[in-house]
Simulated assay, not measured.
Amino acid sequence: MFLGTYEPKLDEKGRIILPAKFRDELAGGLVMTRGQERCVYVFTTREFEHMHDKIRQAPVASKQARDFVRVLLSGATPETPDKQHRVTIPAALRGYAGLDRDLAVIGAGSRVEIWDASAWQTYLAEQESAFSETAEEVIPGLF
């Protein structure tokens, strides 16, 4: 499970060093793709394959499902960390998420999200009151 927030820097070649707590899970390979709210999603290869199995069950007749699958999968790229635990974020994904030098890499349970640091701070500030007011109906049985 991926947890926490880290603040690595993007180097001049578009690479980041994976946070130490994420390295073991991602060492065997990962898949990066467009995330919602203009971030980059990072999945273990196994998790992405599991998610793809579920996506394949979506009805082809559903325009919303087709649109989601197209956006998600057309941006997907497999990567393998190098010996220094670095991965390259493809230019198209960097552009999509507006990534510059300062990043926020967050653990989101089954995935990692890579955000531009200032975009993450803005998002977090905007969501704080909604988070504080979340009722049990949103995630039944949580509290």
Rank of each mutant, 00 (worst) to 15 (best):
A135L: 11
Y123T: 07
R23P: 05
F48Q: 00
A97I: 02
A108S: 15
C39A: 02
P81I: 06
A61T: 11
D102N: 11
L18A: 01
R23L: 05
D24S: 09
H52L: 14
G35K: 03
Y123M: 12
V31H: 01
H85L: 13
A76G: 08
V105Y: 04
V105K: 03
R23N: 05
R38F: 10
T45Q: 13
E47Q: 14
I139L: 08
V87N: 04
Q64V: 13
G4T: 09
G141P: 11
I139Y: 04
K21G: 10
S74A: 13
M1Y: 11
R101V: 12
T88H: 12
A61K: 06
E47R: 10
A104D: 02
T33E: 00
L10G: 01
R15N: 12
I114Y: 00
A130V: 14
Y41D: 07
T122I: 13
K63H: 08
P59W: 01
D82E: 09
D116T: 03
Q57K: 15
L124T: 07
H85Y: 12
Q127E: 12
V42A: 13
T45K: 14
K9S: 15
W120M: 08
R86Y: 08
G98A: 06
T122D: 15
T33Y: 01
G109H: 13
H85M: 14
R70G: 06
L10T: 01
F22V: 01
L73P: 06
Y6L: 04
G109T: 09
Y6V: 03
I89C: 08
E133F: 02
D24L: 00
K63R: 10
A91W: 00
T122A: 15
K9I: 10
Q121V: 07
T122V: 14
A117W: 00
L72W: 07
S118K: 14
